[in-house]
Design a protein around this nucleic acid. Structure first.
Lengths: 152, 152
DNA sequence: TCTATATAGATGCAATTGCATTGATATCGG
DNA sequence: CCGATATCAATGCAATTGCATCTATATAGA
């Protein structure tokens, strides 16, 4: 009987901090983007993955794996990105069900402008608050909370 | 010129981990509640604050301060909680604009049943992954990322 | 007191999310 | 090759969120 069902005070506190801080940081980063009339973070996440993927693009299900967004969410987010001309959908030869999503020049440009704001938020909200050593410690601790199947 | 506008690699990594891990943990906790046919985490947050507040209850704006939910969000969440009989709204004597929200017996019971599931999630997702020392370290690091005006 | 401004909370409407399901192709077992 | 099952992606519909605004009361200042 090793299964713990009641969390320790230390676990509860760490959980509460994690919930609060992450929510607040997201909110502040979103606000910064809005203040610059830029799209929300979710768009950045997708554009970032697609930019890294290069000309080969990515299949929607690969984006789902990388971003943790729900399937229907990616489906509609891609529709919006396509409507804005930030990505293009390409039929893929070897799988009639699927498609490949590729970032466009305009998409790269939008991502670049978002990063100018988003990166500054990260620098201010995290980089300016902890030393690099502490940041590494934090990354390591968070890494141990990942689900086994989680990427990166 | 001390203002950093570009985040260090360590800051980017910590940010990315924080975003990913927190999203994933929330999702897993929400799933656990759903699997038990219980309301979402947001309800727990509010019921928890109200339970701690006791019979005196809390004003909606106090809930906003404590939970970080948006004003319109609290307004409608409270309407749902009231419709379910989990809280009651009381006119407050000294401020005609406001009201006081008090948790009901049914609300306390619902909170209790939610905690049975939520607490187990915390134990499994966090408590079982890190030692108490590491949890304390994590809490301390996250604490330094809080916005100055953030409660707790 | 009277007007201007601030605060508490609700709400109309548009956008997004969540859920369940569907349509379409792929793959597997016999 | 054929039917059963699995995978990829889209979508109808309900619920929630976000934004802007609105109503009502409180407070501050002339």
């Amino acid at each position: 009987m090793t299964e713990k069902t009641n969390p320790s005070p230390a676990a509860i506190k760490a959980w509460a901090r994690l919930m609060r801080v992450s929510r607040q940081l997201v909110e502040r980063a979103e606000d910064a983007l809005k203040d610059s009339s830029l799209p929300p973070l979710a768009w950045y996440d997708v554009l970032h993955e697609l930019a890294e993927a290069g000309e080969g693009g990515l299949r929607p299900f690969q984006l789902i794996e990388r971003t943790l967004f729900a399937q229907y969410n990616i489906s509609r987010l891609l529709a919006r990105l396509e409507a804005d001309g930030l990505v293009e959908k390409l039929r893929v030869a070897d799988d009639g069900r699927g498609q490949t999503i590729r970032i466009t020049g305009k998409g790269r440009e939008t991502r670049r402008r978002m990063w100018a704001v988003y990166g500054r938020s990260i620098a201010e909200l995290v980089g300016a608050k902890l030393s690099n050593d502490d940041l590494d410690t934090l990354s390591a601790l968070l890494g141990r909370l990942r689900h086994p199947a989680m990427p990166e």
